[in-house]
Nucleic acid binder design. Structure first.
Lengths: 173, 173
DNA sequence: TTGATTGCAAAGCATTTGCATGCTA
DNA sequence: TAGCATGCAAATGCTTTGCAATCAA
């Protein structure tokens, strides 16, 4: 069973469709960038992704990675997130249900969580103002369980790709 | 009754205290910037505030406004917010209870709202992960009631100071 | 063949920093 | 008087743009 060839079929189809609808073209660079992006389950900056792409094909430039990430975002495959260090991170969006982030200001760990209750309240709040919601962002900063034990004097969010802990959770159960 | 002299007494005291504790100095520029910031109930960028300050004293530079806003934030009088146009806005923080933002992507209007229910759920979620929360940010983007009626082709958030609609609200009542 | 795509270098933009001068405490 | 504050210019860091060469359709 040849698994490799079959990975991310759906995502690639979506990308192709988006590209064609917009009258754009499929290129080797875009394919490679998409491929590597999909393989990396992490929060990546354009810079981070650029270096990963470099390993496979040193001829690809910064600009193309930036532009492709924008494309992926438009296509609904990626989502931009910011954690407060003034950089734009990208995460998978397709088939990843909407989630929010808890960011540890000591070690930089990012916990993803899903809360249907919070989403419901948000929708209710929007309704109340006649607001038609397109998207939202909830981030909570603080110290994670581990960092509360180890008292450290490092307070900056470390650079580099942010580890991702994915958690589905509702307050109730 | 001389009202003018008595405005923002508490805020100014807090600022002075902060300044002295840090071994810094009270200056005419800082006083002016604080004064104007406090008088302006809006979401302001450093740039916005700079121009307001310019009107009163053209000798004040960009840098000082930037630096002073940082100071005000440290002192707990201001809070940084971002609405997605890649600029840092500042809003009053002292004696303004924590609130969240609903941002109209058509006209740029910003609605502030407070939801105790959402805050509660956030706290519960943090507890669940042993997270000690320091602060959070919830923003919701969409089309406001007015903009849903007037179909316009303007989609960018307009530049300049963002109008602020302040609303205290809970979903329940 | 046409026009989108690429990569480089340069430009943009918001923000920060170095430094000589000015001014509080 | 000591040393923090200021304002200018220059530097920074991330992102975008102009453009000539390349390449997909």
């Amino acid at each position: 069973m040849v698994k490799k060839k079959e990975e991310f079929v759906e995502e690639k189809e979506i990308f192709l469709e988006h590209i064609q609808k917009a009258g754009l073209r499929k290129t080797a660079q875009r394919d490679l960038i998409l491929e590597i992006f999909l393989r990396t389950e992490d929060h990546l900056t354009s810079e981070d992704l650029y270096w990963l792409v470099q390993k496979q094909d040193p001829s690809v430039g910064h600009t193309t990675v930036y532009r492709t990430l924008k494309l992926l975002t438009e296509a609904g495959l990626a989502r931009e997130v910011r954690f407060g260090d003034n950089k734009t991170y990208y995460e998978h969006h397709f088939k990843h249900e909407h989630h929010d982030h808890m960011i540890c200001t000591e070690c930089g760990k990012v916990i993803e969580f899903v809360s249907a209750e919070i989403e419901d309240l948000q929708d209710q709040m929007a309704d109340k103002f006649g607001f038609r919601l397109s998207h939202h962002s909830l981030r909570m900063w603080g110290a994670c369980a581990e960092c509360q034990q180890t008292s450290s004097d490092v307070h900056a969010v470390p650079s580099g790709a942010q580890p991702r802990v994915r958690v589905r959770s509702s307050v109730g159960n």
